[in-house]
Write a protein that binds this DNA or RNA. Structure first.
Length: 574
DNA sequence: GCCGTTTTCGGCCCGACTGTTTTCAGTCG
């Protein structure tokens, strides 16, 4: 049982109890447990077997018993009971913005809505406005939000797709006859969302592999089964396709199934011009003979190309570039990253103590990290008062005395107030090493007002970095309207850095904006915005955005050595 | 539900916004 599965169960439990109108604090306890579990950087199952689980904050006697039940039986009785009791479809209605437990039960009570389709139909028939407490405006919102939900449906976040892919690879890799297995498709290309998860296995005995694979406990339904592939629908709600190839066909198959389709078509036409035929089975000469291929590199070489990393394979000029330059664009990679400049601690809404975070950062070999808790007005995130901020700064100074292999920078993620300006006086910001300015409230300003609001932070002499520029939450919340180009232009003028937020549900800047920012000559900062230790591991997602935007190490601030970094942060005020 | 300068039960994060009201409930960040 994976951590994220246990976390999902508690989240669902909380949602169901919320619908029932259960005690708020009990629900919050379950939500907190879900959050804590999702944030653990060790398997829950391991901690449980070691008897360490009850030491995790937020996990008491009752929740521990439920986790034990899940580990031992694979189920949670209480959750099963609630699922049976509460009409299915209610939870998906509660997913809609503006619909919480109260309105969901109101809708159920009066209209007996059984799900999103049902609700949409009733809204379009103008029957929702007849429900006491709801009006025409809410009805329109419901229709609009369902349409938004539809647009994103069927795709899952890369972060989740990679977790699932890892689970399946682990399951398959030691099965008899399996010589190799890896994710391909958009997972391998690190696209921000993924439709189906594709896996490719190297084996001479696909039948045997498929039989075992179909016995995986999370496989719900077999959608297709052919000689060299199976397609299944999983309990995770994602479709997975497992392709099998014998060793001599593996690399062509890997290239083919990694895609993208457009990139692959370009390769095929390049091959044709060289008198070759490129298919998923190999690279064939006109005389019918197959060229020797023992890696993807070999295929690219036969086509007169260097190895093109999967992140670049989108037919955005990568093939032309490689042909012209005779080399691949130099890309930033995880090992270039020297530190993380956006981390929250338990002083605000983070889970872990500063000491735990420092230990984790040292283990990663970082030269520096910045502690950037929320500012005072963000009450829900327990934003630090000015006194606490100062106390934290002095605390960090003390910790810095303890270590000579890492430097803790004191910082803040300061709110950009709705009318512009920052949620912290200038003389306080002046003392800090790193100032990130972000929007967390009042997302419904119009484009002009929001742009002006953020510009006010760009122009502020104490700000170093603009955090998660568009505020989008993938699959949950659209980006607020903002003139990105105008901000980027101003950021260049005022010497600011733009954050690439690595959190898989943000990825903000996204790859288009990051590419644009590079055109504006800006440097970016790849940060995790971690609220717990596990999420400090999410740096690769931000790096992937940067790579897909063709960023080089010198485009990224936190590839710099500490001394250089500090110099750059100090010379911010042009 | 969990937690505790705590041992048995009370406290647990808050304030703004919105649409529906006509004084406020529900939702959200």
């Amino acid at each position: 049982m994976q951590n994220f599965e246990i976390a999902w169960a508690f989240r669902e439990l909380a949602d169901l109890l919320e619908f029932k109108g259960e005690d708020f604090f009990k629900i919050r306890a379950y939500r907190r447990a879900a959050k804590v579990i999702a944030g653990l950087n060790e398997p829950v199952e391991l901690l449980y077997r070691q008897g360490e689980l009850n030491k995790v904050p937020g996990i008491g006697k009752n929740i521990l018993a439920k986790i034990a039940e899940m580990i031992n039986t694979g189920r949670m009785r209480k959750l099963d009971e609630l699922r049976a009791e509460i009409p299915p479809g209610v939870l998906e209605i509660m997913d809609l913005p503006g619909i919480g437990p109260k309105r969901a039960s109101l809708l159920y009570e009066h209209l007996k809505v059984a799900g999103l389709d049902d609700l949409e139909k009733m809204a379009r028939e103008a029957r929702v406005r007849a429900v006491p407490g709801l009006g025409a405006k809410t009805e329109q919102d419901i229709i609009r939000n369902i349409e938004m939900l539809r647009r994103r449906s069927g795709r899952v976040l890369l972060g989740i797709a990679r977790e699932i892919a890892r689970d399946l690879v682990e399951f398959c890799k030691d099965l008899p006859g399996v010589k190799r297995i890896e994710p391909t498709g958009s997972v391998r290309r690190w696209r921000e969302t993924v439709g189906d998860i594709d896996l490719l296995a190297m084996t001479d005995d696909p039948e045997r592999l498929f039989s075992s694979f179909l016995g995986h406990p999370r496989v719900k339904e077999t959608l297709a089964r052919e000689e060299d592939r199976v397609k299944v629908f999983t309990w995770w709600g994602v479709t997975v396709e497992l392709l099998a190839a014998p060793p001599e066909e593996y690399w062509p198959a890997l290239l083919w199934s990694t895609g993208s389709r457009e990139h692959y078509r370009q390769l095929q036409s390049l091959a044709r011009r060289k008198g070759l035929e490129l298919t998923r089975y190999g690279l064939q000469r006109e005389d019918g003979k197959f060229l020797l291929v023992q890696a993807e590199e070999d295929i690219y070489r036969h086509l007169g190309l260097p190895f093109i990393p999967p992140e670049l394979r989108e037919n955005r000029g990568e093939i032309e570039f490689c042909l012209k330059e005779g080399r691949v664009p130099r890309l930033v990679q995880l090992s270039h990253i020297k530190g993380d400049l956006h981390i929250h601690t338990d002083w605000s809404d983070g889970v872990n103590s500063l000491e735990q975070i420092v230990a984790c950062a040292r283990k990663k070999g970082y030269q520096y990290i910045a502690v950037t808790d929320h500012s005072r007005s963000l009450k829900i995130a327990r934003g630090l008062s000015l006194e606490q901020l100062d106390e934290q700064r002095r605390f960090i100074e003390k910790i810095n005395e303890k270590y000579d292999d890492i430097r803790i920078l004191s910082g803040i993620e300061v709110d950009i107030l709705p009318s512009g300006g920052l949620d912290c006086p200038a003389q306080i910001l002046k003392r800090l090493d790193v100032v990130i300015a972000s929007v967390h409230t009042k997302f419904n300003l119009d484009r002009r007002a929001m742009t002006e609001r953020i510009l006010s932070a760009v122009k502020d002499e104490h700000v170093n970095i603009i955090g998660h520029l568009t505020g989008r939450l993938l699959g949950q919340r659209e980006a607020y309207p903002v003139d990105v180009e105008k901000i980027l232009a101003a950021a260049g003028e005022y010497g600011k850095f733009m954050e690439i937020n690595s959190s898989p549900d943000r990825l903000d800047l996204n790859e288009e904006h990051a590419r644009l920012a590079k055109e504006y000559g800006l440097k970016m900062v790849i940060s995790t915005d971690a609220h717990d230790l596990r999420r400090m591991d999410e740096m690769p997602y931000g790096v992937a955005v940067a790579r897909r935007a063709w960023l080089q190490p010198e485009d990224v601030l936190n590839t710099l050595e500490l001394a250089e970094l500090i110099k750059m942060l100090k010379t911010k005020n042009k």
